[in-house]
Design a protein around this nucleic acid. Structure first.
Ligand code: FES
Ligand code: FES
Lengths: 149, 149
DNA sequence: AATACATGTAACTTTAAAAGTTTCATGTAT
DNA sequence: ATACATGAAACTTTTAAAGTTACATGTATT
């Protein structure tokens, strides 16, 4: 099962965007994430649809933050990326009349719902500006303002 | 991403095994789960390695419970199946020196670890005998003792 | 001993969704 | 007109569970 690294990637990118003057192009973000510009556009499109970023076409265009980092939580980005299940664990659906399958699935689902609720609650408590601690120091010591290594 | 339905399937099978007189063959379990005997053997092998079931080769052989259902928790079976990650969410590993990637991954990992801890705690609180409620009634009303529909 | 049955295991193919890629249309600043 | 950048369609690749095929090994019955 391939892991979904979109949340991790988008958070990284959003925070770097906050330190830039102009728009960030998909090309530069792709280089930073060691991936393809189309993957960046595809994923960023979800965030644009929810109003967290804006995109501008053409010369000098690119992506910019539309909302301050302090107003965006991990939960916001997680939900913007779609409501796919957070768990690799799935429930069977072969004997919907079987009381054992029903009881088993109920027990697993109950535990998963509680765990997911806690996960989302934790995501909700973290705004993106809280993740920038120590960046200024690092930037001065190691490399230029560009997020590209 | 394909879901891992092994936990759900194995729990269903184990509880049905408790209602049988003799051993259950991989063939019958496969029919019950709408799958292949080899898939059953492969998955059951994990439970045998941890001592929850026993297998007997040859004529009249098959699988039997080695421990009472009241002594097995969802957590036991979950862990017996291997320690693969419970989440579809993955962390990036492209800029291990970047303080932002570090902070982002730390925040996501922290939330996931708390959520997983809660999930496993819930799994630990449910023994398999608690999932059999109402099965006797159902069995009498709907079909023969065989777990095969 | 022969047979039927059942597990054990190796070596594949299939599946689903994110990720990756190629290609071209559209829009915009210089 | 040109260079730059997003938008989007139409693919291929990747990963681990699931599924499949084939055969060796072991065991109860006859
Ligand atoms: S398959 Fe569970 S009761 Fe028939
Ligand atoms: S890529 Fe995050 S600081 Fe350079």
């Amino acid at each position: 099962m391939r892991k979904d690294s979109r949340l991790s990637r988008m958070l990284h990118v959003l925070i770097h965007m906050d330190h830039l003057d102009g728009p960030a192009t998909s090309e530069k973000m792709a280089t930073m994430l060691s991936t393809n510009p189309v993957v960046v556009r595809r994923t960023m499109a979800h965030l644009r649809d929810q109003g967290y970023v804006a995109s501008v076409k053409g010369h000098g265009g690119g992506w910019t933050l539309a909302v301050p980092l302090s107003n965006i939580t991990l939960l916001d980005i997680h939900q913007a990326l779609g409501d796919s299940s957070v768990f690799t664990i799935g429930l069977t659906d072969e004997h919907t009349n079987c009381p054992i399958e029903i009881a088993v699935n109920l027990a697993i689902r109950d535990a998963m719902e509680q765990a997911e609720a806690l996960l989302l609650e934790r995501f909700k408590q973290v705004t993106l500006d809280k993740l920038t601690a120590g960046f200024a120091d690092f930037q001065a010591e190691h490399h230029e303002p560009s997020p590209v290594e």
